[in-house]
Each structure stands twice: as C-alpha cells, then as structure tokens.
Amino acid sequence: MSRIEQAFARLGKSGEKGLVVYLTAGDPNRRGSLAYLCGAAEGGADILEVGIPFSDPMADGPTIQAAFRRSLAGGMTTGRALSLVSSFRKKHETPVVIFGYYNPFLQYGIRDFCRDARSAGADGILVVDLPPEEGGEMAPEAKRSGLDWIPLVSPTSGGDRVRRAAAVGSGFLYLISVTGITGARKALPPRLPEWTREVKAQSRLPVAVGFGISHPAMAKEAATHADAAVVGSACVRMVERYGTSRQGPVALRRFVQSLKKAMR
C-alpha cells in the first residue's frame, strides 16, 4: 500500500475526513519553503501537495501565479524542488503529491522525473494539463516508479470521463469544485454536494475536493460528502503575508490545526 492509500485507510478507520494542504516549492524562497512544509505537516495535514512552479500557469489564479513568480525568482528549478521533497521526507512521513504543469516534467525527462521524484520520497503526482487523452505519456511511467497517479475531474466531466479517470488513477481522485481557476473563494457552489455524490458513485478511489476552499467551515462543508478537502490558495496567502518571517510556519501550523479541528 502506498503512503497515500495508507493515509486514507487510517482516516477511513477513524471516520475522519482528510486534509490536503497545497504549497509551492521554493515559496517564499528555497530555505523558507521547507519550514512551511514542516509547519503544515505538524499542523496535521494528512497529505501535502507540493507545486513545481511554471512560468505560464493557465489554470491558476493570482495567488498561485504570484507564488510561482516568487519561487522562480528565487531560483527554484524542478531538480531543486525534488531536493526540497527529499529534505522534507527526512523529517516527516506525511505523503507528498507533486503538482505541476507538463512542460517542466517533459524537459526534465518523464522517466527520469518519475524515478527521481520517487527516490526523493514523493508518493504521487498530479499534472494539471495532462487529461486522460494525453496522460498516456506519463501515467504509466509514474506507476512503474511507484508513484500514485492523481487524476482531476471537474463539474464539466460527465460520468464517462469520471469513470475513465478513476480507472487510470490511484491514490485519490481530485474533484475540482468549480468551473474556474484556483483561488480562495467566499462560498462553495450550491451544487457541490450533488457533484461529489455523483463522482463518488463512479469512483472506487477516495475523492478529495479542492479549488476555492479558504476557511475551516468551508473545509468541513466541502469534505462532508467527500473523503478529503484541499486547501491551497488560502495557505499560499499565509506564505505571501509572512514571507521569510519565523512566525510564518507557526501561523500556517495553527491555520492547518484549525482546518483539521473543524473537519473532525
């Protein structure tokens, strides 16, 4: 069983909902990034999603765009992001999902990247611009290396696409809560419970709901019909606000604790 599967098995046993926390590798800078990842893990995140920055993140809103800019300006590269995962892995057992856009992986070399990510201690990979139609270029390599392949489904995916995604994926299914880009929002779409139930019915994998979830009550609500909630931009905003200050990772840890508490 992979670390991700173990995490969901443990949550299932205790009847708890999972919390996935997203942060960008190299944000606010290379050293500071590790402290924030550790803060999130210590706050009780069940899974960490670590973003590899890309110059043209077409599915991301202003918060993550800015994080990518900070990270790239600080000299982050795909290779250095893997070193960061490796440093994190020496301190914590929290499962890590690599998040990114396809081109940096393609330039690194798909096979090399999957192998190196696995040996750095990553557990899964999510490529935002690789739908099932193009996923054949990477999903088999990821699986061969022992990484879970995390597919995305959205409110516009019909039942067929959800089944197809669930069939190629492992670990969990990432349900995008809205038709839109990433970014903290004030409320969840009213039809989310219905979508979540539909996706759950088509998938043998656990379902994590993400995009727009910005505070504890929303995380609780989003996870009600799913297995986990993903909180991204709201956490990245804390990095934006505190930067390299030592209070930053502490504040993030407390925020993650408050999310987790609301979801219990």
């Binding site: 077409m58 690789l130 739908p131 139609e133 193009e134 959205s154 516009t156 995916s157 995008i176």
Partner: peptide, 12 residues
C-alpha cells in the same frame, strides 16, 4: 498538437 489542458476544458 494534442489537447494539453485542464480537465475543465476537455468537454468544451
């Protein structure tokens, strides 16, 4: 060529 886009756009 191909369609390297987020899932949300695939159906469209």
């Amino acid at each position: 060529g191909g369609r390297y886009v987020a899932e949300t756009l695939m159906t469209a």
